[in-house]
């Protein structure tokens, strides 16, 4: 449907968005650097290696972020953990997005079926979803793909609700009526009028979902399920370091915790910037 004869200049909008939200720009930069570093950068030490002669070293010239109780290099481990943690978060988000949007569209059609879908959703959301996810992952024998499914389980209902409420209110909107009055086909109305006006808010939710997924993954591996040792993950590093906090070795849990906080902050900032842009278009 790229038969637009006129289009607003999107490049300009994108640049303006990043200029007005330096936090979001910084966040995106941080995530990109972290992800690329975890995938391609040569790390100073083997992230899965241990070194009995260098346990519990404090941050310094040799080990930038210090070492843990087994002598693992925290810097290498924190960077490397992004590989698993961020990929799982992104995969979970994509699954939530696709399933949630499709179900949301289905739930926003008129008729009995969509009513039933929403009732089912209500019943489902009555469960404490994190506990459900926990049970699911541990019952599956700690399969990583179950972590992705667990994230989707938590976030699909949110996408569904969001999409349903947006589409239902857009349906009643004047510009949809205007399109009908002009003689637009249902297909044209969905693709040119409905969906483009939903994407902004879906994008916001997507960004928030990544942040949520990072926390869920960290929570699961903090509880010892999901990503299992020796593969480093932020959650398990926080658990490892928790016992050392009282004896003063803050860096084991500290840097992993910082990584989680910064990632969540980055995606929240991005969500904010996108939301702001969407709102500005509506004004």
């Amino acid at each position: 449907m790229h038969d637009d004869v006129f289009a607003p200049r999107r490049g300009v909008q994108m640049r303006r968005m990043l200029r007005q939200h330096p936090g979001a720009a910084l966040g995106v930069l941080f995530i990109l650097v972290l992800l690329l570093a975890s995938l391609f950068a040569p790390l100073p030490y083997d992230p899965m290696g241990i070194d009995g002669g260098a346990t519990l070293r404090s941050p310094g010239g040799e080990h930038w972020f210090g070492t843990d109780g087994a002598g693992g290099d925290i810097f290498s481990r924190v960077i490397y953990a992004a590989r698993v943690d961020l990929s799982l978060a992104l995969a979970g988000t994509v699954l939530s997005l696709v399933v949630g949007v499709l179900l949301g569209l289905a739930a926003s059609s008129k008729g009995k079926g969509s009513e039933r879908l929403v009732r089912g959703l209500d019943a489902f959301q009555a469960f404490p979803l994190l506990i459900l996810a926990l049970a699911l992952v541990s019952l599956s024998g700690n399969k990583l793909y179950m972590v992705v499914v667990a994230i989707a389980l938590i976030n699909v209902p949110r996408f569904m609700r969001l999409l349903r409420s947006e589409v239902l209110s857009l349906r009643e909107s004047r510009f949809i009526e205007a399109a009908t009055a002009t003689g637009a086909s249902p297909r044209r109305i969905i693709f040119r009028h409905l969906l483009p006006n939903v994407w902004g808010i879906v994008l916001v939710q997507t960004s928030l979902t990544v942040a949520n997924a990072i926390v869920v993954i960290a929570s699961l591996s903090f509880l010892g399920i999901g990503v299992s040792p020796p593969t480093p993950s932020w959650g398990s590093m926080i658990r490892d370091g928790a016992g050392n906090m009282s004896s003063g070795e803050w860096w084991i849990a500290g840097f992993a915790g910082l990584a989680v906080v910064l990632c969540v902050l980055a995606f929240n900032q991005l969500a904010d910037a996108i939301g702001d842009r969407t709102a500005r278009t509506y004004r």
Binding site: V5, F6, T182, N197
Partner: peptide
Amino acid sequence: FESLNPRMAIGAIVAEP
């Protein structure tokens, strides 16, 4: 305002019919 799709350029709105 409510009768114009907020994400479509003015030209595209007028072109639609």
